[in-house]
Amino acid sequence: MSQPLTLYTNPQSRGRIARWMLEEVGRPYETVLLDYGTTMKAPDYLAINPMGKVPAIRHGETVVTEAAAICAYLADACPEAGLAPPAGDPARGPYYRWMFFIAGPLEAAVTNKALGFVVPPGREMMAGYGSFEDVLNALEGMLSATDYIAGGRFSAADLYVGSSLNFGMTFGVVEKRPAFERYWARLAERPALTRANAIDDALLTPKAD
């Protein structure tokens, strides 16, 4: 991974997930800070991400957007970090399953709940995720049975799942079920997360003139 690596982010965004992943990988990277409504919508950045949102990474000439995709990409690009089960390992199944369960059903369910949208009775099949309770119950069942998602050790799937759960619990959209809190408490002790949070928290503090 000798090609330059750049993170496009804002400290008040899902860019925190990507930064945590980069700190876990342990490779040097440059940070480009973007502001909502201005530089995030400027032509230079829209050429990188036409959606005009963060995070995004550039690795050499490769651009990756979407937090889940960034986590999966970096885990495979830096196998020495041990953040993804190797190809052929049965743990690769739950690794992908739950990472994209969060990116799909949980993301949609949480967004709808935050917006006050409730799937009408009898229309659950059209929503894809069924109901909000279905999503939380499925996740709770999995996290009640294991400390880590893939092969009994921390992986990029835990990073993404844990980040999303913590965000939901912090803002009161996801209820603080014991299995969720125990899971996040394990992940919150990661040194890479401490480093990532320190970097982003410092960016939130206005600099003195």
Rank of each mutant, 00 (worst) to 15 (best):
P43Q: 09
D44H: 13
D44L: 07
D44S: 12
L46N: 03
I48R: 00
I48H: 01
I48V: 08
N49P: 04
G52Y: 03
K53I: 13
K53F: 05
V54P: 00
V54A: 03
A56M: 04
A56Q: 01
I57M: 03
R58T: 12
R58E: 02
R58F: 01
H59V: 11
H59N: 12
G60I: 07
E61K: 04
E61I: 04
T62M: 07
T62E: 06
V64N: 02
T65M: 08
T65F: 01
E66C: 08
A67K: 01
A67Q: 10
A69R: 11
A69F: 06
I70T: 02
I70H: 00
I70D: 00
I70C: 00
C71M: 06
C71I: 15
C71A: 14
L74W: 06
D76K: 15
C78I: 09
P79M: 07
P79I: 09
P79N: 08
P79R: 01
A81L: 06
A81T: 12
G82I: 12
G82F: 08
G82Q: 10
L83A: 15
L83S: 10
L83N: 06
P85C: 06
P85M: 07
P86T: 15
G88Q: 06
G88M: 06
G88R: 06
G88A: 07
G88T: 09
D89A: 09
D89T: 10
P90Q: 13
A91D: 00
R92H: 12
G93Y: 10
P94I: 09
Y95Q: 00
Y95A: 00
R97H: 08
R97S: 10
W98Y: 14
W98G: 01
M99F: 05
F101K: 05
F101S: 04
I102V: 15
G104H: 09
G104C: 13
P105N: 15
P105K: 12
L106N: 04
A109M: 13
V110E: 00
T111N: 08
T111A: 11
N112G: 13
N112I: 07
N112S: 13
G116T: 02
G116L: 01
F117S: 13
V118D: 14
V118T: 15
V119C: 05
V119Q: 03
P120W: 10
P120D: 15
P120H: 10
P121M: 09
P121G: 05
R123A: 15
E124P: 01
M126D: 15
A127T: 12
A127C: 11
G128R: 13
G130S: 06
S131M: 00
S131V: 04
S131L: 03
S131T: 15
F132H: 07
F132M: 03
F132T: 00
L136K: 01
L136G: 03
L136N: 02
L136I: 08
L136D: 02
N137S: 14
A138E: 06
A138H: 05
E140G: 13
E140F: 09
E140A: 15
G141P: 02
G141Q: 11
M142K: 15
L143A: 00
L143V: 02
S144D: 14
S144K: 14
S144H: 11
S144T: 14
A145R: 12
T146Y: 01
D147K: 11
D147Q: 12
Y148T: 08
Y148F: 14
I149P: 01
G151H: 03
G151N: 08
G151I: 07
G152R: 11
R153P: 02
R153Y: 06
S155K: 02
S155Q: 01
